[in-house]
Amino acid sequence: MNPDASTIAAGAPIEVDLSPVAEGQDIKVFWRGKPIYISHRTKKQIDEARAVNVASLPDPQSDEARVKSGHEQWLVVIGICTHLGCIPIAHEGNYDGFFCPCHGSQYDSSGRIRQGPAPANLPVPPYQFVSDTKIQIG
């Protein structure tokens, strides 16, 4: 009953070109049937994410640990609410991040859970920068 070979093959890594994404914008790509949000964060969003006292978070994790150093403006997260799997809406909620319409979980501009029933931060998928404007997810 586990995924068959073709499903696994279709889940191979994908490359995404970031050059068309302007600051303050984000795009949603699908990888392994999951929506991946790639946000080009503004200075304000980065500062907000870093000003928080990490120990006070429900799922403590620093913003630095969730992005690649040298590419702090790019946030790449799996857009699936860690509560029950709905897709949060970007640029909504009280924390300049994501808001899940199903059960009201709110994530900040680093994709960390701040309020609501979700137990964990939005997961960061495995990815690396191939060049300055291109990433490979997977």
Binding site: P3, D4, R32, G33
Partner: peptide, 10 residues
């Protein structure tokens, strides 16, 4: 994963 047979409902 076992229920889905994949990485998401499909």
């Amino acid at each position: 994963t076992l229920l889905w047979g994949g990485y998401s409902v499909g």
